[in-house]
Nucleic acid binder design. Structure first.
Lengths: 112, 112
DNA sequence: ATCTACCCATAGTAATACTAGGTGTCAAGT
DNA sequence: ACTTGACACCTAGTATTACTATGGGTAGAT
């Protein structure tokens, strides 16, 4: 899948996987790939800046840890982040339903 | 609904409504509003440039007509446009399903 | 006369996902 | 000893794109 289709929905995905439990960036990428059945394989250059953005917006908080010589920045969902997740989830539902309605009337190309 | 969530999926919507039959820009906006049950109420500044883009990409062709003193530019889906619609529709299905899968595991906030 | 609906257009802005690079650790293979 | 690949982080710059704001014009109703 072309990744750029993510536009506007990346935050929802990131918040969703972190809602499941605190995670560091690399783990977020892996988790997203797993849960989406390989559909989402996001480049680091997409995820890290987005996490910074979400932290700045107070949707996530972070802390450093050192695990066997590797430094990790682990992100946790804040209260605001949890609320945002709920809202974004609803708006995703509305959005996808609306698209579905528009598409409903359109016939698929003839496949005899 | 906040319109900017459209990012990356506007073309699909435009192609879809025009696939139903040739339409001019203003009619596209109306049709989209109707079919989406008011969810999509796109500003003209969004739609017109997008139509130009799609025509440039040879997904649409256009022609002017004059109806009771009003000039209209009517767009018709090209063969390439029809193919693109099919592809974008499939990729929308994959995309929305993938989002659904990611969201599946996440519990909604406690609503007692 | 003015307002609203109809109908088109463009310039500039903001947001954001991505490309392309960079830093460094550790384990396994050669 | 060296290289490769997985792990783990980061940023600068680019491209795309939906939107805001604005402008032009016609027709019909109040």
């Amino acid at each position: 899948m072309r990744g750029q289709a993510l536009k506007g929905h990346l935050d929802l995905l990131l918040l969703a996987v972190i809602a499941d439990g605190p995670k560091h960036g690399y783990a977020v990428i892996e988790e997203l790939r797993l849960r989406s059945d390989e559909a989402f394989d996001l480049p680091e250059g997409t995820v890290y800046p987005a996490l910074h953005r979400l932290e700045k917006a107070d949707y996530l908080s972070s802390g450093w840890s050192e695990t066997q010589g590797r430094r990790r920045r682990t992100y946790t969902l804040t209260k605001r982040g949890s609320a945002a997740l709920g809202e974004q989830r609803e708006s995703w539902n509305d959005f996808s339903q609306a698209i579905g309605q528009v598409l409903k009337g359109v016939p698929w190309p003839s496949t005899p």
